[in-house]
Write a protein that binds this DNA or RNA. Structure first.
Length: 812
RNA sequence: GCCGGAGUGGUGAAAUUGGCAAACACGAUGGAUUCAAAAUCCAUUGCCCGCAAGGGCUUGUGGGUUCAAGUCCCUCCUCCGGCACCA
């Protein structure tokens, strides 16, 4: 057996494909279209690692198969190239992000090509290209025009020593990643997008699409719609002040023994003079201000809080005066920023009440509340006129009552918050707005787009929290588009998510300078048929892009209101140490060396064979050896077959021996279905079984027809070697212009099967029988078997269970 | 704390969805080939008892349903992923 020369073959096939232009998607072709998409990569300086490759290869397998099935396939790529690492690298080294990015893209491109991914390079896009971000800015202006973009004071992470705003990622346990200083919150005016306006549609329309249940569940939970009641609690001996709470359990309100307000709640400021322990309260507020939301979350084991002494709230249902606390486990941006606490029927309240020795009064009948709160629905007690009602009914009546009395109403809350769209960074799309003293905020006219990022030499932060753009007067100073007076540009840029929220739309028509894409082309290509990406993007990117797509649908730009018909997600590839592959852990496996040593086809086969695609898996480079051996086998069978004179009867024969024919058709079925269902690993193992059988028969029974069928089935996985062997068997055209094989259901059926004989559910014997044997016959045969006789002896037969063409179970 | 997913040989895993547990690979051991090695080929490879024929056990734990459970139901344990304490 000889090894095939993968280096020679792979570069030869790659050149052939490039010359043929095989993977270029044709606009408006008559064939049915198929739009296959993976999340476009951020071109980092580390290049691709074997973890990235897995999902690209998987979609490439799908794309290649779809082409052979007669589809006009769009399989595009681009670069999500704005981002923090390039900017930080620029601050450190002075190298312009544009240069770094170009260098990284060239490296990624080389790697994609060396893997043999069948991308349409004619549609490559780059989010940092002004021709592209012109349309990102255009979409922002449309959002602004429709009132979906607004400004609000929002806190950012602020490092007082670096004098720079930090991303969450740059804050490591409350400290600045670079200098270690304590990170503070700093309030800044930020641009926000009203994604909450789309919350209901983002939930409801999930019904229209084919996403895995776990993805749908995550999105629904993230949006977190909950219907409940808002109740006003008056402050005792205060005319105007009150605290509004939101609750889904208004039925338990008679058990409310205290209120908790978020540290940011205005009541603390408003009642400052009456709060007797204000000094201590202030200390608590300062402490909690230093914590991120995440830290507040992490500290759940030790719930902290402090009573606002001197003021009391009045429960409007039973007029009891109850204490008010502030605690940082209550977040300011959910609901009303304050809660009513019912320790008897809420676990968190229960723990808090125990810690601070607060009364616990049950209002649901006959339920144990020790040692744990009873949190389910039940029949009300100690609730005045609402006694004996069941929770569900009580919620309705009590909400109605509150509305009539004017201290409450039915309301809906979402966990989802509006999208903070401003970044104080250089390397992002400039927000196309102008601040004019006279006219206020003025949008840049559409004809003046794009507002290009100026090319700068210094990336140092300004120290004021503004983006580095603020320190370029030539760029900042401009004329107001409305009145012509001196004005200043907005210096905030957009987040990374902006460009990635609509890139798949641009692939339909990437060079259009008149529109983000032409209507006709959008109609032809959209929506995306199959979108694969990581679970880590299920709640942010996926939701943001669905939001933008719906908005673009509303303003009549795109033809549907859902962008992706089918979403799948790959499991991450862990490094040998069981951790995520990451440069900081130093555990990254680069595909280049593996391609050099074993070839791209072997790497591809292993990546697909290593385990179930949707499950996380640990990388092991040794596995590539098995894949290489498999391909060597395919190569060597080919050598034997192709050496035979073409006139040879055996070689020409269409039909061969029955066993092989059956196996071939079974393999076609398995491979076809498995690829569609992301079961690449079992598709390959089926191919291995077929190849092992062909190997045995290569000298006698195997025909060229059989072998070519194998090559077609193998071609999506190992395209280079399949193409080469296809050409060796006197074909001029590409194997990818061939039809995907079809199986004959009649030929799949086994004639004979092994029938399992069980006695009392234990396997005792096996017999070869015709596949369609009847129960009576099977029973007769089974009872004749020596072993069976031995186990039955003289015991009476109680029952016989017969599963057609599988087993017979005799119960004695 | 909440949500989601998963626990099967030395390793990655498979199991037609309730019907022969361990397919297909990696690794290991023995043999062939070789001056030698690599590569390749052949054989063995879940565990226990047994010289053998053969028998028993086995899918994180404990229980249940069933003629039959890796698969369904309940208990507990462990690991992975996500998170913005969702009131």
């Amino acid at each position: 057996m000889e090894e095939y020369n993968h280096k020679k073959i792979e570069s030869k096939s790659q050149k052939f494909w490039e010359n043929q232009g095989l993977y270029r998607a044709k606009d408006f072709a008559k064939k049915p279209k198929q739009y296959i998409l993976f999340e476009f990569p951020y071109p980092s300086g580390d290049g691709l690692h074997t973890g990235h490759c897995r999902s690209y290869i998987a979609l490439d397998v799908a794309a290649r198969k779809k082409r052979m099935e007669g589809y006009n396939v769009l399989f595009p790529i681009g670069w999500d190239a704005f981002g923090l690492p390039a900017e930080n690298y620029a601050i450190k080294t002075g190298t312009h992000p544009q240069k770094t990015t170009a260098r990284n893209i060239a490296n990624f491109k080389r790697q994609f090509k060396s893997l043999g991914i069948s991308l349409d390079w004619g549609r490559e896009i780059n989010t940092t290209d002004p021709k592209y971000y012109k349309w990102t800015q255009w979409i922002f202006l449309k959002l602004f025009e429709k009132g979906l973009a607004y400004q609000a004071e929002m806190p950012i992470n602020w490092c007082p020593s670096c004098k720079i705003g930090l991303a969450n990622e740059e804050v490591v346990s409350g400290k600045c990643e670079r200098c270690g200083a304590e990170v503070k919150k700093k309030k800044l005016k930020q641009w926000m997008l009203k994604i909450t306006e789309y919350a209901d549609r983002l939930i409801d329309d999930l019904e229209k699409v084919d996403y895995p249940d776990r993805v749908k569940t995550q999105q629904i939970n993230w949006i977190g719609k909950s219907e409940g009641t808002e109740i006003k609690f008056k402050i005792q001996s205060s005319k105007q002040d009150y605290i509004k709470v939101f609750t889904t359990r208004v039925d338990t309100i008679f058990g409310c023994t205290y209120l908790v307000a978020a540290p940011e709640h205005e009541i603390i400021k408003n009642q400052k003079l009456r709060i007797k322990n204000y000094k201590e309260v202030k200390k608590y507020l300062e402490k909690s201000r230093k914590k991120s939301d995440l830290q507040r979350t992490e500290l759940d084991k030790e719930k902290t809080g402090i009573e606002l002494k001197g003021i009391k709230a009045i429960n409007p249902f039973n007029h009891l005066e109850i204490p008010i606390f502030t605690a940082d486990y209550v977040l300011p941006h959910y609901g009303t920023g304050a809660i009513m606490a019912v320790p008897a029927h809420d676990e968190r309240d229960f723990a808090f009440a125990k810690k601070y020795n607060l009364p616990i009064s049950p209002v649901i009948q006959n339920k144990e509340i020790e040692p744990k709160a009873f949190t389910q629905d039940g029949v009300l007690i100690n609730s005045g006129q609402f006694d004996n009602l069941f929770s569900k009914q009580a919620r309705k009546r009590m909400t109605n009552y509150a509305r009539k009395q004017g201290f409450g109403r039915e309301t809906v809350n979402y966990k989802l918050r509006d999208w903070v769209f401003s970044r104080q960074h250089y390397w992002g799309e400039p927000i196309p707005l102008v601040h004019c003293q006279k006219c206020g905020i003025v949008p840049v006219p559409y004809k003046d787009l794009p507002i290009e990022l100026p090319y700068i030499e210094k990336y140092q932060p300004t120290g004021t929290g503004e983006s580095p753009l603020a320190s370029i007067p030539e760029w900042v100073n401009c004329k107001c588009p409305k009145c012509g007076a001196d004005a200043k540009r907005e210096t905030d840029t957009m987040p990374n998510w902006a460009g990635s929220s609509w890139y798949f739309i641009r692939y339909a028509d990437p060079h259009n300078s008149k529109a983000l894409a032409s209507k006709e082309k959008l109609k032809y290509w959209l929506p995306v048929n199959w979108y694969n990406g990581g679970m880590e993007h299920t709640t942010l990117h996926l939701l943001y892009s669905r939001f933008w797509y719906k908005f673009l649908y509303d303003i009549n730009v795109v033809p549907q209101d859902e962008p992706y018909l089918r979403r799948t997600s790959h499991g991450i590839v862990l490094a040998k140490d069981g951790k995520k592959m990451s440069k900081s852990f130093g555990n990254v496996v680069n595909p280049d060396a593996l391609i050099e040593k074993y070839g791209a086809d072997s790497l591809r086969i292993y990546e697909m064979f290593m385990g179930p695609f949707e499950q996380a898996i640990t990388w092991n480079s040794n596995g590539v050896i098995g894949a290489k051996r498999f391909l060597d086998k395919v190569w060597n069978i080919g050598i034997v077959i192709l050496r035979e004179p073409t006139g040879n009867a055996r070689i020409l024969r269409q039909s061969h021996n029955d066993k092989l024919e059956r196996l071939i058709h079974q393999t076609i079925k398995k491979a076809t279905e498995d690829i569609e269902n992301l079961k690449f690993n079992t598709a390959i193992s089926a191919l291995m079984v077929l190849v092992n059988e062909m190997e045995k028969q290569k000298q006698k029974q195997l025909s060229l027809c059989d072998y070519q069928l194998l090559l077609k089935l193998l071609s999506p996985f190992a395209p280079h070697i399949a193409e080469e062997l296809w050409h060796k068997s006197k074909n001029k055209k590409s194997i990818f212009e061939e039809q995907w094989p079809k199986y004959d259901p009649k030929l799949i059926k086994e004639e004979k099967i092994t029938l399992v004989i069980q006695i009392n559910g234990k396997v005792r014997d096996k017999i070869e029988v015709l596949a369609d044997i009847s129960e009576a016959e099977a029973k007769k045969l089974a009872l004749k078997q020596e072993k069976v006789k031995k186990y039955i002896e003289h015991k009476p037969i109680k029952k016989v269970i017969f599963v057609k063409s599988k087993l017979i179970n005799i119960v004695v």
